[in-house]
């Protein structure tokens, strides 16, 4: 039912549990093409788990995930990514031993057509493909303003720049849907403002659909068209930023029951 009319990504009553502990239960969600949606909720509410279900890190015990109308439930993460869903990680999982450029190039690998033998022998066909991938990766680095640091080891960069590398790396996979897990974590207000601008910019430029998890309410309220609130693994509200801000259920989830009484 969730996989109809224009939805690019749909979760149909998905549930996941770990050792008897339910992390996400009966979660329904649709993402229309070109939308920019925020997924918020208190710590441990199951936001990242939703991401992990979409990208195939976790297989749901119940329910289905559809991408462009196709059932992708239980697909391996690399297949999901190749199909067109890329993500970033909350705790930033850069390839620390690789350079910034190489980090981005890793995401281009699945597009490579040359065989390993062609690569090992440096055959012209491979060299050409590599050149194209490099140009593309450099463009992306330029886009996130890290071109000068292309040959720096990714692990040695400061936090904010690592976040940008992660976004460039996800973009390099040519996704249709981009999942951003707390992209502003650890950024100062100025950096966050630039990030907001950047997110909106890439969405328009690449025609992306974006789902993001974020604790920075200013960012979420500022750029998301629609917000979904999740608590204890269950959806508790959905609506425009204005609707969410006034929703008593949301306030109680964030501040606790007592605060709600005074609100």
């Amino acid at each position: 039912m969730a996989s109809q009319n224009g939805a690019i990504l749909a979760l149909d009553s998905v549930s996941v549990s770990f050792g008897g502990l339910v992390a996400v239960s009966d979660f329904d969600f649709t993402l229309g093409k070109g939308e920019l949606v925020g997924l918020i909720g208190p710590n441990g509410a199951g936001k990242t788990t939703v991401f992990n279900i979409i990208t195939g890190q976790y297989e749901p015990v119940r329910g289905k995930v559809f991408f462009r109308g196709r059932d992708i439930t239980g697909w391996r993460p690399d297949r999901v990514t190749c199909a067109g869903i890329a993500r970033t990680f909350q705790n930033m999982r850069l390839f620390e031993g690789l350079t910034v450029l190489d980090n981005v190039l890793v995401s281009r690998h699945s597009k490579l057509r040359s065989s390993m033998l062609a690569a090992a022998l440096n055959l012209p066909g491979y060299v050409r493909e590599e050149q194209v991938a490099r140009t593309k990766a450099m463009e992306l680095l330029d886009r996130v303003g890290l071109m000068d640091l292309a040959y720096t080891e990714a692990g040695s960069l400061p936090y904010g720049q690592q976040r940008r590398v992660e976004i460039a790396r996800a973009l390099a996979a040519d996704p249709e849907v981009l999942l951003l897990d707390e992209p502003a974590a650890g950024m100062n207000p100025e950096e966050t403002a630039r990030l907001m601008e950047f997110i909106c910019g890439v969405r328009d430029e690449f025609g992306l659909t974006i789902l993001l998890i974020e604790h920075d309410m200013k960012l979420v309220m500022g750029i998301c068209e629609r917000i979904r609130v999740i608590d204890y693994g269950m959806s508790i509200a959905e609506g425009t930023p204005e609707e969410i801000q006034g929703n008593p259920k949301v306030i109680s989830a964030y501040l606790g029951e007592e605060a709600c009484e005074y609100a």
């Binding site: 690399d78 995401s107 390993m116 440096n122 991938a133």
Partner: peptide, 23 residues
């Protein structure tokens, strides 16, 4: 090569490598 980069990405972080489309 691109294959070597993919191998190194697996070495550095399997979860991230898989999420970037590396089998």
């Amino acid at each position: 090569s691109s294959y070597g980069r993919a191998m190194k990405s697996v070495r550095d972080d399997e979860v991230a490598a898989e999420a970037m489309g590396i089998p």
